[in-house]
């Protein structure tokens, strides 16, 4: 205290206050970064850093024995959409890749639409339950979400296999006399993804429906709207943020799905995730795998960006 006394006599209080504040600020900043450091370092080593390496790899030359040659090349990116004909050296669209891209987008969209068709009434059902039982219904939706994805996929497989429940039942009743082939089809993949990602649609939908002001619904009926009109003109517009959030939350993991198409699609029905894996396995084309990964990442980022833009605009429109 004596020191500060002389300080204030010498330099005037002006400087010491500002200095103390600055020193305090510096300490705060240091503490914050020290506290964040372990998380940031872990993420840098095991998430963000490796992603950058993937980006680098996508610009390298492939080593046919696996791995890469450290030589700059844009071949991989080229190969994502185009391929050079072995015979006449002309450029063609890489049909194999594009069809898998297309299938992934198609199946993901299909899954999203199905999830919306099933999820919307379910979320609405939960949101309109009495306070006491609502928690229980919500819990029932959450449970599958936190249980192992592989096990859930396995469960679906057991249902739709040729020797599975559905076929056995139909055979036993005598409706069919040969099992219906459901495994290893696009249908199987879509069912599987619907099954595993459905809670991701229901939860955000529920969150926005829970906030729904039912006096507005009453107002709708008061103004002669039928049930369907109230649904279309009042409820759906009001819960639109939930619809968008749920759709994005289902679409993104569907697009990058790996386990479900691997188990239910077998080797036949590939999706983007399996195509990527293939490049690191049998394909031995790491740069192409890297470029495909980056492409998938870009699509996801664009979807997220659209989502952020949409929701922030929505927020603005409401004031």
């Amino acid at each position: 205290m004596a020191i500060s006394g002389t300080q204030s006599q010498r330099g005037g209080t002006h400087v010491s206050a500002a200095e103390a504040a600055a020193a305090f600020e510096r300490r705060e900043t240091r503490t914050r970064w020290l506290l964040s450091a372990p998380a940031l370092i872990t993420l840098a080593v095991a998430s963000i850093g490796p992603l950058l390496i993937v980006l680098v790899y996508s610009f390298l030359q492939k080593n046919p024995n696996g791995g890469v040659f450290w030589q700059f090349s844009t071949d991989a990116w080229f190969n994502v959409i185009l391929q050079r004909d072995i015979f006449d050296d002309t450029l063609q669209f890489a049909d194999a890749h594009l069809s898998i891209f297309w299938r992934s987008v198609k199946l993901s969209m299909g899954t999203t639409v199905l999830a919306l068709i099933f999820g919307f009434p379910t979320a609405y059902f939960i949101a309109t339950r009495p306070e006491r039982t609502r928690e229980l219904w919500l819990f029932l939706i959450t449970i599958p979400f936190w249980t192992n994805l592989l096990i859930r996929t396995f469960a679906i497989q057991e249902v739709i296999r040729n020797e599975g429940i559905v076929n056995s039942l139909l055979l036993w009743v005598g409706i069919i006399d040969a099992p219906i082939q459901m495994m290893f089809t696009d249908f199987a993949i879509m069912m599987g993804m619907l099954y595993v990602f459905l809670p991701l649609m229901v939860l955000p939908l529920y969150a926005s429906m829970e906030k729904l002001d039912f006096r507005l619904v009453e107002a709708g009926y008061d103004l002669y709207a039928t049930r369907l009109q109230v649904l279309r003109r009042v409820i759906i517009p009001l819960v639109k943020p939930g619809i968008i959030a749920g759709s994005i939350l289902v679409f993104i993991p569907s697009l990058g799905a790996y386990v479900t198409p691997r188990v239910l699609g077998g080797g036949k029905s590939l999706m983007l995730g399996n195509l990527i894996e293939l490049q690191f396995g049998q394909g031995r084309n790491w740069p192409l795998g890297a470029a495909l990964s980056m492409t998938l990442l870009c699509i996801v980022m664009v979807a997220l960006l659209v989502y952020v833009r949409k929701t922030s605009r929505q927020g603005g429109a409401h004031g």
């Binding site: 992603l51 390496i53 990964s293």
Partner: peptide
């Protein structure tokens, strides 16, 4: 930046992270 970093695992498709880790750890 810290927020974004912490949330990357939620945004990046698992298969992409998996491949990235494969390359790096290999």
């Amino acid at each position: 930046a810290i927020f974004a970093a912490i949330n990357t695992p939620l945004m990046v498709p698992e298969i992409v992270t998996a491949v990235a880790l494969l390359i790096f750890f290999a």
